[in-house]
Computed example of a mutant assay.
Amino acid sequence: MSADDFRGQRVVVTGAGGFLGKRLVARLHGLGCEVVELGRASGFDLLNDEMPLSGIDHVFHLAAETGVPASWEDPARFHLVNAHGTVRVLDQCRRAGCSVTYVGAYIYGIPQSLPISEEHPLDPNNPYAFSKWMGEQACEWFAGTYALPVTAVRLFNVYGPGQSDRFLVSSLVAQALDPAVASIKLMDISPRRDYLYVDDAIDALLSSRSPGGYRLYNVGSGVSHSVGEVVEVVLAAAGSSKPVIDANEPRRNEIPDVRADCTRIFTDCGWSPRYTLAAGVGEMVREALH
């Protein structure tokens, strides 16, 4: 499949008002799709409402409770929305006969080896990851039991314009551009992550629709960068020379390095990332300044 296969189709996006959802909806409109946008902003309740699926070709299921710190405070809520909510979406799609793309999460914990393939042992080591894993398991079960075409995508660290400042790259861009911020303060500059620009993530979602059965893909850049390296890229893009203060206080259960092996989605779908970290951050800075 490719993005062009969606041209003119009728598509539902849950979580349409979120960071990734807004970007996906815009891309789908650009392909001439009729898009039904479902989310909190439109009054849609994932746990109680039925999706309007008459004549719908495909559902992108992005709606979820997010945030690792928040998940520790209310793991039952995260499980209810992310696992049971996903079961409700899958069951409605089963009855309506439309295919599904499920947006999953990083669920590998501390890697035993790098890069991380889909066969790497799983370690959903926080309530958020556990709830997303349960949703993913539901996808595989519905695909196998009901022959529902489902693609599950394990996104690595997605970043881009419009993302909340709760996330690292957005926070750094905001600090670099804010004249009231004298220095960039960080807890620990050593952890490495696989940062994926949002438009690359959207390309992956559009290119990976299953023609039948269950498909599972890692989606990342295939390159890891330390927090310190990200700061350098952000400051360069912003034309800033603000000092960086490292408190050298590692987080509990910190993961030292993450890097995705995206061989499977490249082989099956021809997808590979187009943006380097510098290019993606450059786009964020340009949008922030305009």
Rank of each mutant, 00 (worst) to 15 (best):
I107W: 09
Y108D: 03
Y108H: 05
Y108P: 06
Y108M: 02
Y108R: 03
G109S: 01
I110P: 11
I110E: 14
I110C: 14
P111N: 06
S113E: 04
L114I: 05
P115G: 00
I116W: 01
I116N: 01
S117V: 02
S117R: 14
E118M: 00
E118H: 00
H120R: 01
H120V: 00
H120Y: 00
H120E: 05
P121Q: 01
P121M: 00
P121V: 00
L122F: 15
N125P: 07
N125G: 15
N126I: 01
P127G: 00
Y128V: 04
Y128S: 01
F130S: 06
F130Q: 13
F130G: 08
S131D: 09
S131Q: 15
K132C: 06
K132S: 07
W133T: 15
M134S: 06
G135N: 04
G135L: 07
E136Y: 09
E136P: 07
Q137D: 15
A138T: 13
A138D: 11
A138I: 06
A138Q: 03
A138S: 13
C139H: 13
C139T: 09
E140V: 11
W141E: 15
F142N: 03
A143T: 10
A143H: 08
T145E: 13
Y146Q: 10
A147T: 07
A147L: 13
L148F: 05
L148I: 07
P149L: 04
V150K: 06
V150G: 12
V150H: 04
T151G: 11
A152L: 12
A152P: 12
V153C: 07
V153H: 02
R154S: 01
R154Q: 07
L155D: 04
F156A: 02
N157V: 08
N157G: 11
V158G: 05
Y159I: 03
Y159C: 13
G160F: 14
P161D: 05
G162N: 07
G162R: 08
G162K: 08
D165C: 14
D165Q: 13
D165I: 13
R166S: 09
R166V: 12
F167L: 14
F167N: 11
L168F: 14
L168P: 01
V169K: 08
V169L: 08
V169I: 13
V169G: 09
S170T: 06
S170L: 11
S171Y: 05
S171K: 02
L172Q: 12
A174R: 13
Q175K: 10
Q175H: 07
Q175A: 08
Q175L: 05
A176F: 09
L177S: 12
L177A: 15
L177W: 14
L177E: 02
P179Q: 03
P179Y: 09
A180V: 15
A180N: 15
A182C: 10
A182R: 15
S183K: 09
S183V: 09
K185L: 14
K185R: 11
D188Y: 06
D188P: 01
I189F: 10
I189P: 08
